[in-house]
Design a protein around this nucleic acid. Sequence first.
DNA 1: ACCACGATGCTTTTT
DNA 2: GCATCGTGGT
Length: 733
Amino acid sequence: MSGIFDLTDDDLPPLQEEFPFLAELNPQQKEAVKTTQGPLLVLSGAGTGKTRVLTTRIAYIIAKNLAFPWEILAVTFTNKAAREMQERLGAMIGGEAGSVWLGTFHRIGVKILSRHTLEAGLNPNFIIISTDDAERLLKNIMTDLGIDVKKHKPAIAQEIIASWKDKGYTPNTVPATLKSTFAMNKMDDIYKIYQSKLKDMNAVDFGDLLLLPLILFQQHPDILASYQKQFKYILVDEYQDTNTVQYLLLRLLAGQRKNICCVGDDDQSIYSWRGAEVENILQFSKIFPEAKIIRLEQNYRSTPQILACASALISHNNGRLGKNLYVADGRAVVGEKVGLTGYWNGLEEAEKIAELIVQEHHKGIPLNAMAILVRASFQTREFEDVFMRMGLAYKIIGGFKFYEREEIKDAVAYLRLVLNSGDDLAFGRIVNKPRRGIGPAVIEALQETAMHKHISLFDAIQETQLRPSAQKALDTFQETILNARKELEITPLQTLTKTLLTQSGYIAMWQQEKTLESEGKIENLNELFNVLADFKTLQEFLDHIALLTDEDEEEEADKVQMMTLHASKGLEFSTVFLPGWEEGLFPHQKALDEGGETALEEERRLAYVGLTRARFKAFISCASSRRVYGSWQHPLPSRFLEELPKEHLEAVNVFTPSKMHAFEWGDGPLAMAPPTKVFSYPKKSSRLGRRVFHETFGQGTILRDDHGRLEVHFDNFGVKKVMARFLEEITED
DNA sequence: ACCACGATGCTTTTT
DNA sequence: GCATCGTGGT
């Protein structure tokens, strides 16, 4: 085992020509770039230039001839991050950037699986199904198993399976401790059948894109070895968001060489509910004892006041690796205090924020440099109403996505069926769209045949006795699909799809409707045709669309950006508005109920992420009345407000329960009397003593809340610890 | 096959 | 308060 991994940086040959990009970095960034050998954890606080470090590091490795571009693996979480890195790397090193294995975890997963379909138990041309496809499939499976899908939602089953996959478990390896009582204890069967149905359809879901490569590597050491040999350097972005499978994959790929550089910020870990294991970053130096840790703490984004607020807030979390953000050397920033205002209700909050936005705009801040960051998406509604009335331009980021639209999913289903007759989900979606007189009875007959003969629904068409009208309709349908399949090799995708959707009557279906909505759908389909022009093969297109989330936003448009706090991670704005800092909403009650103290810390990190998006000015606010689900709530100001340093705040009309931190009132235009009631924050869960129902154990009373695991005294089963999510509350009235 | 009504259930959602 | 979904009637 001789190799470059034995060398230190000093032993390496000097650069042929000066590597100019190091000069632009601060000492810590420079060190992160130059520490190429061995495991490295870069703790990179918000706004400390981690993308610059990542791209410069790749460029440096190539410039120093430590590796060829294709021997570098760089993984990100979002397409957007991957695209940004690709662009910035391209600007530094030119065309060679295209040879780096740079992409999202899932895309890299697809790439690896496609190269070893046989060993991975797939056929070439496997398809990637979306979350709602998976849900539909699970619904069918559960119904077949005699489970009432109204009472036991397939979406929950899907979450459970996804969480198993995130942790690296196949149907055979789910440990007893993680078994679920959901769906009448049939989750084991459901998972097993789900996987076999996927296999029948030659399909994989999102979780499989990571899990199957892991299994592939575990079962085929030779394949693993070839990748270990290839990837001399591995870089990981947003390491705090990796789940267990991703961690396992990375550890396997890092092999003996262990040239793995993980960049992340434990304080920005906000996706634990999606399977992210913040432990991965916390335990880095346990896993790699020789690991070097570099902290990036020089902040190039925010004012001292914003940094002070963010730092004070996050310091209330336990078990942090610890960082101290400060204004980067050489940046002279005066800055303003962070605004903190209590409003009467949600409407006033929206109106006053709209006014502030207009004021800021007059000062020369473009609308698209301002953002409203909310905890829950329903909060944008109130802002939309007000903005619409005022004629203030806004854009909601991360709402409905292109590929999630009905007509796009339909079109994609047609194409999937063209590529793969076995795609029963696609078949089910479009067989009667447009109407072909194919009702549930016909589908059932097809399913019957398909089941007995082990063939697809599509192939069951000839094998089933059907009434003539249905038979004729299905024959025509089938012919249209098969025609398109014949054309695959010879006709451009765009033309082929147009023909397919015309012949099948799909386009006509929307044209006939002649509503505003249907016109939009036709437009979207045309947009889809444009996209199709960029692809050579159908497979390539389907892979692309399956993993596509963020269409290229029209960032040029001068509109106020509205989004959830989650969606804001990685972005920055001149001015940030943080409304709705109220107990129950932020921190969110549901999070507290289900996750206890752990969840509270994640909520706090969310607040930290929100604050650190702001470059110059942040406005935090809360309302004393808010309409939630129709009824009026009178929430307390968020406990997070008390955790902010008073000296960096300009507070108006905010009354928090703690006397020690009570804010001044009366100096604003909305002055009102100090509160007469004494409030206090609930100690832990507000659910202690409540009566609940559990599927297996029946009724009981909540005794204790231990980090989301509730200790419940069941009337017939005694005391048990159960997850809050498996409990239903009984309202006794 | 379609509409109309009522029951239901509402945090976040990188791929 | 509202949108979505499933049922049951025509």
